Structures are given as structure tokens and as C-alpha cells.
Amino acid sequence: MVKILLATRNVGKLAELRDILSAEAAQVELVGLNDVESFPETAETELTFSGNALLKARDGARHSGLVTVADDSGLAVDALNGMPGVLSARWAGSQKDDEANNRLLLDQMSDIPDEHRGARFVCAAALVRPDGGEEVFFGEMTGRLGRAAKGTNGFGYDPLFYPDEASENVTSAELSSEEKNRISHRGKAFVALAQALAR
């Protein structure tokens, strides 16, 4: 059994990756930051998803001595030239307020016609080994932005985002957890990462 650290305190994200790893790499025990001795966490200062994911994974591997996984993700809106991008969580300010972020994004997109409301969620998942080996895996979920928030099964921009791959015309926040994990940017990146671990 190989112990792997997921550099997060988000229990939902930990559960999601445990589900994926159990299907792809059975000999893995996944722990989170709350399960290891605490250490100073580096701020996400990079300008790319992969850069921020690597910052967190390197920290975890260096301080814990464990193979460490970390991810960074966000929303890239076509009409905003790919923004909010790596600033997704802080789009309306440093307080990381989902409701304020959604309100600001809807205001910025208010005069954009439906045919130009394309967007995609992007995830970079980094895998760093204590010996210095590094890999980054990517996932995307394409779709479009709605004009009002709908649904409660999600966070961030999920209530505004209609995924192209959804079985029905619903937002990410209206999908079941199973369907969301199957088609999401994070799910795709973590499946690729889990397959690499299994090898």
C-alpha cells in the first residue's frame, strides 16, 4: 500500500480523488493535509494552473516525505479572453466569495449574446515525488455560461455553467456527483493521474 498526500484540506475533493483512485489504482492510501504534520503553505502566486499545482505539490512532498498530488483549477471564459482563469477564486476580491464572483461574472457577461457565452473549466493536477520526479495532468470541461445561478450541488461557478457533455441541459450544480465526476475537468485530470500511479 502506497501512501499519497493530496495537498488540500477540502474533504469533498479528498473524497472525490479517493473514489477515482480506488477505481484506477487500488494499492493507494490517500491522506489530506489534516492527516500530516502541519507546515507553512506557499501562496498560489503562479500565473498558470500547472504552476500553482506544482507549488503546492512540491511543498507537500518536501515537508511530508510522501508522494504528493495537488491541483489548481478555474473557469476560462471565451468572451473574457480566458479570464478569470487562475484568478477564478479571487475574481471579485481576495475574500474568495463564490456569490460575489458569480455576480461579478454575470454583470461582465450581461450584454454577451448566448452564442458567444462559451467557457471551459480547466484543471491541472500535479504529482511530485520526494525524489524530485514531477508530472502534470490536465482536464477540461467545455460548456457555456447561463444568465442566472441554478442548482445547489456544487460550488464556485458551477451554478452558472452548462457542460456540453451533460446528459441533460443542466448546470454543473444540478448534476449528480457521479455524472459530475465522470465529465468534470478535475475528474479527467485525476483519472489520468491515477492511471499514471497505477503504472
Results as ranks from 00 to 15, higher is better:
Gly118Ser: 13
Gly118Leu: 10
Gly118Arg: 14
Gly118Glu: 13
Gly118Lys: 13
Ala119Met: 10
Ala119Asp: 13
Phe121Gln: 00
Val122Ser: 05
Val122Leu: 13
Ala124Arg: 07
Ala124Asn: 05
Ala125Gln: 07
Ala125Asp: 03
Ala126Val: 03
Ala126His: 01
Ala126Arg: 02
Ala126Lys: 00
Leu127Gly: 03
Leu127Met: 11
Val128Ile: 13
Arg129Phe: 12
Arg129Cys: 11
Arg129His: 15
Pro130Trp: 08
Gly132Gln: 10
Gly133Ile: 05
Gly133Ala: 14
Gly133Tyr: 10
Gly133Gln: 14
Glu134Gln: 15
Glu135Arg: 15
Glu135Pro: 01
Phe137Asn: 04
Phe138Ala: 04
Gly139His: 08
Gly139Trp: 01
Glu140Lys: 08
Glu140Leu: 07
Glu140Ser: 07
Met141Trp: 12
Thr142Phe: 10
Thr142Gly: 11
Thr142Pro: 04
Gly143Pro: 01
Gly143Ile: 08
Arg144Lys: 12
Arg144Asn: 08
Arg144Cys: 10
Arg144Tyr: 09
Leu145Arg: 05
Leu145Phe: 08
Leu145Met: 13
Gly146Cys: 06
Arg147Phe: 08
Arg147Pro: 02
Arg147Gly: 06
Arg147Trp: 10
Arg147Tyr: 12
Ala148Asn: 09
Ala148Val: 14
Ala149Pro: 07
Ala149Thr: 13
Ala149Asp: 08
Ala149Ile: 09
Lys150Arg: 15
Gly151Lys: 00
Thr152His: 11
Thr152Val: 13
Asn153Ile: 02
Asn153Ser: 13
Gly154Ser: 06
Phe155Val: 11
Phe155Tyr: 14
Gly156Pro: 07
Gly156Lys: 05
Tyr157Gln: 06
Tyr157Lys: 04
Tyr157Ser: 05
Tyr157His: 08
Tyr157Thr: 04
Tyr157Trp: 02
Asp158Leu: 07
Asp158Cys: 03
Asp158Ile: 04
Asp158Arg: 04
Pro159Leu: 03
Leu160Lys: 08
Leu160Gly: 09
Leu160Asp: 11
Leu160Tyr: 11
Leu160Cys: 04
Leu160Met: 09
Tyr162Glu: 03
Tyr162Asn: 03
Tyr162Ile: 08
Tyr162Phe: 15
Pro163Val: 10
Pro163Glu: 12
Pro163Cys: 07
Pro163Thr: 10
Asp164Ser: 11
Asp164Tyr: 04
Glu165Gly: 06
Glu165His: 10
Glu165Met: 12
Ala166Pro: 02
Ser167Leu: 14
Ser167Tyr: 08
Glu168Gln: 15
Glu168Phe: 09
Asn169Ile: 09
Asn169Glu: 15
Asn169Gln: 13
Val170Met: 04
Val170Ile: 14
Thr171Trp: 00
Thr171Cys: 02
Ser172Leu: 11
Ser172Glu: 06
Ala173Glu: 02
Ala173Thr: 10
Ala173Asp: 01
Ala173His: 01
Glu174Tyr: 10
Glu174Asn: 05
Leu175Phe: 00
Ser176Leu: 02
Ser176Lys: 03
Ser176Asp: 06
